[in-house]
Write a protein that binds this DNA or RNA. Structure first.
Lengths: 146, 146
DNA sequence: TCTTGACCTCAAGTGGGCTTGAAGTTGCAT
DNA sequence: ATGCAACTTCAAGCCCACTTGAGGTCAAGA
């Protein structure tokens, strides 16, 4: 059992952030000591998980949907699998990007965007993403979601 | 040379997004055909790069700072190296997260947050992050930036 | 008992990254 | 010459993830 300031100190999350997460149902407190919220130790793992998932680019909504509001809501296997696959895809993109940057560092081309090697690296990373495929016919300014 | 609708179609970025990027100096057009902006082909690579960098969690500001407003502003090697390292760190986190999720999928523990294997995976991912170290003394609600 | 300081709630504000909408301009086809 | 679709600008709006601020409450110590 920890209060909010302990949890904040140990997790590196500001108290306001912790309260906010509780408000949106990502974590929960299990009571009060006076006014102070009390958290179970478990919540530390939960917070770490949330932090990682955010790094992976998931929204709080997606995270909640994946890990549930309580610990239990038996994390649906297919959801988890989908997220794991999404992360895999992201890892590939990041790897390509990193390689691209490292290449640029010791590439002598004056304009790196013209460097064929660089372009290939970037393009390869995105062909995976191109599963997004095609969408709206015309393009009267509307469209896509990224 | 392409106009905005062609670029939009080929890149999957909405016209408004392209105009916005131009406004903030991430891309540039090289003239007009009538009213229409004209872009060089180079900008496609640039856009791909921006997209990847966003996936990696960088803000538009950071991206601009890294790849410059024009193609040239000779991408500072140390900045690039730092970004590459940051991406490496992120890859490690994502890998751990993915492994964690995959583990949960065929872990029989009723509450996965209690599963020691899972906890270890998560913890390992974050110890890398703990370079963030310590900060403010007290914790009167102020503090940190994540 | 009184103060103090760390917590509390709730509403409003912030910054990033765009999108939307109104009003105007343009080139091309009729 | 006229219409119209596809652009243009500019300001305002929106969603997300929080932070900030005002005003209130509590419990531990002087």
């Amino acid at each position: 059992m920890l209060d909010i300031s302990e949890l904040s100190r140990e997790s590196g999350f500001s108290p306001s952030k912790l309260r906010y997460y509780e408000e949106v149902g990502l974590i929960r407190s299990v009571g009060r000591r006076g006014l102070k919220r009390l958290y179970e130790d478990e919540v530390k793992t939960r917070i770490s998980l949330i932090s990682l998932a955010q790094t992976a680019g998931f929204s709080l909504g997606e995270i909640k949907e994946t890990i549930g509001s309580e610990g239990r809501p038996d994390l649906d296997g297919t959801v988890l699998a989908a997220k794991a696959d999404a992360i895999d895809a992201k890892i590939k993109e990041l790897t390509a990007l990193r390689d691209g940057l490292r290449h640029v560092m010791n590439c002598t081309a004056e304009n790196h965007l013209d460097c064929p090697r660089f372009q290939r690296i970037i393009r390869v990373a995105l062909t995976k993403k191109q599963v997004d495929g095609k969408r709206s016919k015309k393009n009267p300014d509307k469209g896509r979601r990224n």
